[in-house]
Amino acid sequence: MKKKKILTFGQAINEALDQAMSRDKSVFVFGQGVDKTGHVFHSTEGLLKKYKKKRIFDTPNSEQAETMLALGASLNGKLRPVLIHHRVDFMAYTFDQLVNWISLWSFKSSKKSYAPLVIRAIIGRGWGQGPQHAKTLHTMFSYLPGLRVVMPSSPSEAKGMMLSSIASNDPVIFLEYRALYNTKELVPTERFYIDLDQPRLRLKGNSLTLVAAGTSVLTSLKAAEILYKEKKIKIDLFDLRSISKMNLKKIIESVKKTKRLVLVEDGWKNFGYSSEIITQIVENKIKLAEAPQRICWPNSHVPMSAPLEKDFYFDEHDIVKACKKVLKEKLIHSN
């Protein structure tokens, strides 16, 4: 048994950054206020003391220039920058840098040049963050060829995925749901790497296939627990990990077996990964027993007000309801 330690999501990222920086002198961390006070939800704590100003530093409020600094510094792996934005919403300023420079960097050089940079961005979701601080733009980024867009769902996942993202020779957008920072898990203490392209089977079962990513994995785990307690139903629960490079092989196999599909996405319903997965299931001519269910955010901006916000986000009970819907027939038979 490998050594493990209980860490929060923020501590796990901190450990990953520390282990990457101590192994590889080309890794550096920067962004607005990243070396100070809150330390980005404790994820950069202690790094300044250990690695000094040269390798972790604050910047002016200039997201566009910061992003191009990361690109220029990363060229052909000369350095491995980790740029941090406290909210993913701030990245809207850097749309040009992502669309016209970073995403096509490898392509337009025919792979002679590459840009191994990591952009960490936090999705505010919850506690009145409102329309300008709670968006998740994961599908917007994933639409672009050439970007790896990943969303970890737990402390262990965050650590392994952060180490892989830094080691990856592609540009990675690493999206962190703020709601996950206080979650805890036993995390391997060693330096370990997660294959960003492979979804992880979190739970095994035969009755239906559920796909989630980021926070929605945690909510889905809770829903699965309820389903088991109430009806002894076991499900295949997949954590997508990567949004832009979804490898759906195992998910397709699972759907072939269960014939039932539920997609859970902390993001808008239109054009989400949920839509993409359903498309691919249809393209693969897989006949479903029931119409697939999508549990997503309404196609509306996020309200700040507490009761409206509560209404806006789904919870485990909404997922349970959707699961029961696709299981309709089965439940009748087993009752």
Partner: peptide, 19 residues
């Protein structure tokens, strides 16, 4: 051309964690 979008390699990674 389509295989040029991603480098799809990693530095120093010998093996991935067993899922």
């Amino acid at each position: 051309y389509e295989n040029n979008n991603f480098k799809a390699t990693y530095k120093n990674v010998k093996k991935f964690y067993n899922n």
